[in-house]
């Protein structure tokens, strides 16, 4: 037991390496357990499935590094897709629809940020509220019936360039951009600082409110983008789209080594975390295990990931 704990703590010190090791372990197991796993078609499919979770997780990671949390991303995915599809249908303009979808995500993020920074509502509660409100609006706008969706979004969601899913390529580009942003820009470094010690950062001259507002707005924007990709993939904007996605997204962030307590985390880890989540989903399909077990496993993975975080910090809280 003691040795086991030490091992887990050791893993904790190199979280990117540890999540990568888990990814490799699952992949190696699947390559033996299933003939189909290593087929390029399947691997590319895993990449596509990972991409939406990863893109939204990029925003969520910045929120969590800044010591916040955004539970509303799943609903924002749904609402953005619905707004885009409805406007596209009613105006006949693809540009208006897509822009409105992205702006919906941004607006939801800004609302979360304002609730936190101006009204001082704990982000857990504030985003739990917007989770419900955004989903409700999506259902009201559509009467609960999916709206057909297509065009450019369908290309991004379902298309391929040289056989590689467009959404996967987009995810790689965004991950590189967000990585550079987080590690090289002033705002990026201030995000880490406020997550580490908000009071000290404020007194050192970091504009706490502005940075907090920024990370929530950015997370909302990426959730909106995720909604467009997901609906594009299905060629349909279902008002229930993205339900439960917050769990996958937060799991990917935490698995990737981001500390829930803020101030620490890497973008590379988040991408690997999202790939691992997608790989686990794939495993259930390939091995023919009941989808209900998949739901249970997701919960176990999130508890495991947060447990790793707790063990790494050892007895700091006690």
């Amino acid at each position: 037991m003691q040795a086991g704990l030490t091992f887990v703590r050791g893993l904790g010190r190199h979280r990117e390496a540890s999540v990568f090791a888990m990814l490799a372990a699952v992949a190696i197991y699947l390559s033996f357990a299933s003939d189909y796993f290593l087929e390029p078609r399947n691997l590319l499919n895993v990449g596509r499935q990972a991409s939406v979770v990863a893109i939204v997780a990029l925003g969520q990671a910045l929120v969590i590094i800044a010591r916040g949390i955004d539970l509303s991303v799943g609903s924002v995915i749904g609402l953005s897709a619905v707004v885009a599809a409805v406007l596209m249908r009613d105006t006949g303009s693809e540009a208006i629809g897509l822009t409105a979808g992205l702006l919906t995500g941004l607006a939801c993020g800004l609302v979360n940020g304002v609730l936190y920074t101006r009204f001082r509502i704990n982000p857990f509660i504030a985003t739990l509220g917007t989770l419900s409100i955004a989903r409700g609006i999506a259902l009201l706008m559509t009467g609960g019936i999916p709206v057909p969706f297509g065009g450019f979004a369908e290309f991004v969601g379902a298309g391929r360039i040289f056989d590689i899913p467009v959404s996967f390529l987009l995810m790689i580009v965004l991950a590189v951009v967000v990585h550079l942003f987080a590690s090289r820009t002033v705002i990026g470094r201030e995000i880490y600082a406020i997550g580490d010690n908000p009071k000290a950062s404020r007194l050192a001259g970091v504009n706490l409110r502005a940075i907090r507002l920024f990370v929530f707005a950015f997370c909302g924007l990426l959730a909106g983008l995720g909604g467009l990709i997901l609906a594009g993939n299905l060629a349909s904007a279902d008002p229930n789209l993205g339900m439960g996605y917050e769990l996958d997204v937060i799991a990917a962030v935490i698995l990737g080594g981001t500390a829930l307590s803020g101030g620490r985390g890497s973008i590379l880890g988040v991408v690997i975390g999202a790939l691992l989540m997608a790989l686990l989903n794939n495993a259930f399909v390939l091995l023919g295990i009941s989808a209900y077990w998949q739901v249970v496993t997701k919960g176990l993975v999130i508890i495991f990931a947060v447990g790793l975080d707790g063990l790494q910090r050892g007895g700091d809280d006690d």
């Binding site: 470094r189 201030e190 880490y192 600082a193 580490d196 010690n197 009071k199 000290a200 950062s201 007194l203 050192a204 001259g205 970091v206 101030g263 620490r264």
Partner: peptide
């Protein structure tokens, strides 16, 4: 409580 960023390096603490 109000001074250091405990998880940050000396350099990052000084530069913030």
């Amino acid at each position: 409580t109000a001074g250091i960023l405990p998880q940050h390096s000396v350099r990052d603490n000084a530069a913030i």
